[in-house]
Design a protein around this nucleic acid. Structure first.
Lengths: 345, 345
DNA sequence: CTGAAAGCGCTTACAG
DNA sequence: CTGAAAGCGCTTACAG
C-alpha cells in the first residue's frame, strides 16, 4: 500500500479536505485545526505519502540541491573538500551533486548546460590553474553560471575573479613553512611542485621568497622545480634536481606542494640513498590520511579542507558575499629535523 | 540579456508560435518546418534560454538524477566507487548525488525521507556490515526505498538480500591470495581485519580457510585477527598478534583486509624490527594510489572499484535485474617475497 | 506542420 | 480555520 504515485490529491480525497489544507499540514503551518491536522497526518502515514520535491521546486523556485565542480575525487584532497561540503549541505537539508570541469567547458557556446538546467540553488566551483587562453573560457563560464545561480569559488582563485570565495592565504602559509625550516637551521631549502604560470603557486612562490628573505637566505633557482601535484611528478622533480646538482649542493630540506608530491620526494630520496630526516627534511601539505604511515611519518600542514567545503556551502546558502580565508596548522611528525652539519664540512 | 526566468512562453511569444512548437524544437522532434525551427532556435540563443529540468521532470516523471549511499568518501576505496559511478552517470546525462547511511536510518519511522522526496531515478546503496538488530532496519529501509525507485546494491551484500547487485566474489579472491602466498612457500599466513559477525568477511574467511586447505595447511586461530578496516586498527591488530606470540611463531605472511590495514601492518612490522618482505610478506587489497609509495611498495589487489560504480549505474539505468560480479587483479610490488627459511631453524 | 488544452504535484494569494 | 483557483514551466495527446 502506498507508492510513489500517492499525491496530495489522494490525501485530500481520503480525508475529505482540500489540497490546500493538506499542503498546510505538510508545511507545518499553524493555521490548521488540531483535529484536521491529525486526520491528514494519519492519512499521509497510512498511504505512505511522500511529497515530491520536484513539484515543490516548480512553485517555490528552490530545489534544495547544490552542485560542486571538482577536478578529481581520487585525489584525497578533493575528497576532503567534498566531504566537508556534503555533510554541511545534508545538515541544512540540501543535497550535493558532483560535477567535473569537463562538464563546464566541453561546449564553449553552451557552457555548463547540465548545471543550469538542473536549477541548482547554488554552485561551488573549485578553480584550478588555467593556461592563458583557457582562463577567459573559465571566466566566461563562471559569468554565465552566476546569471542562473549563486556561485562560490574555492581553490586557486585569481585575485581578479570577483566572486565570493573560501581560500587559503598560500603566501603566508609558505612563508611560515620556510620559517619553520630555517628555524631548524636549514639554509638550502627546495620547493617542489606547482605550475610556473599559475597564479596561485605564484603566491606560494611569493611566500617562499619572503621566507627566504626573512632568514637572509638567497633565492636559488635550481631549488625551485615546477611540476604537477602528483606523487609521480614529485619523484621525477626531485630526481631531476638531485641528478643535476653536485652532492654538496643538495638541499637539506624540501617543501612539497602537497602530500602526494611529498610521497614522491620520499621515494626519490630513498632511491638516492638519502636518509630522511637526518640528511634531508621533507614537508608536505594537506595532511592526507596516509601521511602518518609513510616512512618516515610525514610532517605536513593540515589545511582544514573539510572546513573549506563546509564554509563554501554556508556562504552559498546564506548568500553572504564574502571572500574568506581558512586557517592551517603545522602537524609535526618525523620527516623534518634540525639540519645535520656534515662533519666533512 | 537573458537569465534564469526565460521560459518557453517567452520564446513562443518572441517568435510568434505556440509553446508546443517551442517544446518540439527543444526536444529535437522532426515534425517542425525548417524555417520555424531556425527562428525558434535563434530566439532561444538570443534570450539565453535554458529549459528547466524541474518542470520537465514534473511531466516526464523522470529526473535524470541518481543517488548513491556510501559510508565515507574519505576512505579512497569509496572515492573510487563514487568516481566510477559519477563518470558513468555524467556520460549518460545523469547527475549523481551522494548521501550517507545516516540519512537512511536516522528516523526508523520515516527512513530515507530525503532520498524519496527527491524522486531520484535510481539509487545505489553500498551495504556494510550491520549488527543483528540493525540488519532488519536496513532491510526495511531498502524495501521502502525500492517502492519508490530502482535500487542496486554494492559492497558486502548478504546473499538473502534480493536486489540487483555488483559485488566481488570475496571467497574466491581470498583463496587465490592464499594460493599466491603458499606458492611463495609461506606456511604461517595471518589474516587481519574485518568483523567477526560480518557476513562478507565470513565469505573471506571461507576463502582463507579454503586456501589453507588447498595447501594442506592447518587453520590457526591466533593468525586470524578481526578489526576495523583502518590503518590504526591494522597496526593495533598486528601489534597484538606479534606481542602475544613467540618470535618463532610469528607469521611469515600477512593478508590485510585492505590497503589501509596493510599500511598499519607495515608500520607494526617496522616497529617490531621485522623487515618486509625478507622476514614478513604483506599483501593489501584495493590498490590505493598510495600503495606504490609505501615502504616497501605494497603488493595489492586491484578490485576495479571504479568499474563497480560504473556497472551499478548501468544496471540502474538499464533496469537489468542482475547480480553481477567484478573481476580483480593481483598487482605485484615489493612487499611479498618467497619465504626466508631461518638459518637457525 | 502547428496550436489549444489538459495535466504533472505542489504552493500561494485571495475569499470566506 | 478552510477552500477554490491560478500558477510554476514544461510535455503530451488530440485536433486540425
Amino acid at each position: 500500500m502506498g507508492n510513489q504515485n500517492t499525491t496530495i490529491y489522494d490525501i485530500a480525497s481520503e480525508v475529505g479536505v482540500s489540497i490546500a489544507t493538506v499542503s498546510r499540514v505538510l508545511r507545518g503551518e499553524s493555521n490548521v485545526s488540531p483535529a484536521t491536522r491529525e486526520k491528514v497526518q494519519q492519512a499521509m502515514d497510512r498511504l505512505n505519502y511522500r511529497p515530491s520535491s520536484i513539484a515543490r521546486g516548480l512553485t517555490s523556485k528552490t530545489t534544495h540541491s547544490l552542485g560542486i565542480v571538482l577536478p578529481k575525487l581520487l585525489n584525497p584532497h578533493y575528497a576532503m573538500i567534498f566531504t566537508g561540503a556534503q555533510e554541511e549541505a545534508l545538515r541544512q537539508g540540501y543535497s550535493l551533486s558532483l560535477f567535473s570541469w569537463s562538464s563546464l567547458d566541453t561546449d564553449a557556446y553552451n557552457p555548463a548546460t547540465m548545471l543550469i538546467e538542473r536549477r541548482l540553488d547554488g554552485l561551488i566551483v573549485c578553480v584550478e590553474y588555467s593556461p592563458p587562453g583557457r582562463d577567459e573560457l573559465v571566466q566566461k563560464a563562471l559569468q554565465t553560471l552566476r546569471r542562473f545561480m549563486p556561485v562560490v569559488l574555492i581553490g586557486c582563485v585569481p585575485p581578479w575573479y570577483d566572486f565570493p570565495s573560501v581560500t587559503h592565504n598560500n603566501a603566508a602559509m609558505m612563508r611560515s613553512i620556510v620559517a619553520y625550516l630555517t628555524g631548524l637551521g636549514h639554509e638550502n631549502i627546495a620547493f617542489i611542485g606547482g605550475i610556473e604560470e599559475d597564479k596561485d603557486p605564484h603566491r606560494r612562490d611569493e611566500g617562499y621568497r619572503a621566507g627566504l628573505q626573512d632568514a637572509r637566505l638567497p633565492y636559488i633557482a635550481s631549488y625551485r622545480v615546477y611540476g604537477k601535484g602528483t606523487a609521480e611528478a614529485g619523484k621525477e622533480a626531485l630526481d631531476g634536481m638531485l641528478n643535476s646538482l653536485r652532492r654538496d649542493r643538495w638541499p637539506t630540506a624540501v617543501i612539497a606542494l602537497n602530500d602526494l608530491v611529498a610521497m614522491g620526494c620520499l621515494r626519490s630520496a630513498l632511491e638516492h640513498g638519502i636518509s630522511v630526516p637526518s640528511q634531508m627534511s621533507v614537508i608536505g601539505c594537506d595532511d592526507l590520511f596516509c601521511a602518518p604511515f609513510l616512512s618516515p611519518p610525514l610532517t605536513s600542514i593540515n589545511t582544514h579542507q573539510q572546513q573549506t567545503g563546509a564554509r563554501a556551502v554556508q556562504l552559498l546558502i546564506s548568500g553572504e558575499q564574502l571572500r574568506e580565508t581558512v586557517s592551517w596548522e603545522l602537524i609535526e611528525r618525523a620527516s623534518c629535523a634540525p639540519v645535520h652539519k656534515e662533519t666533512e664540512d
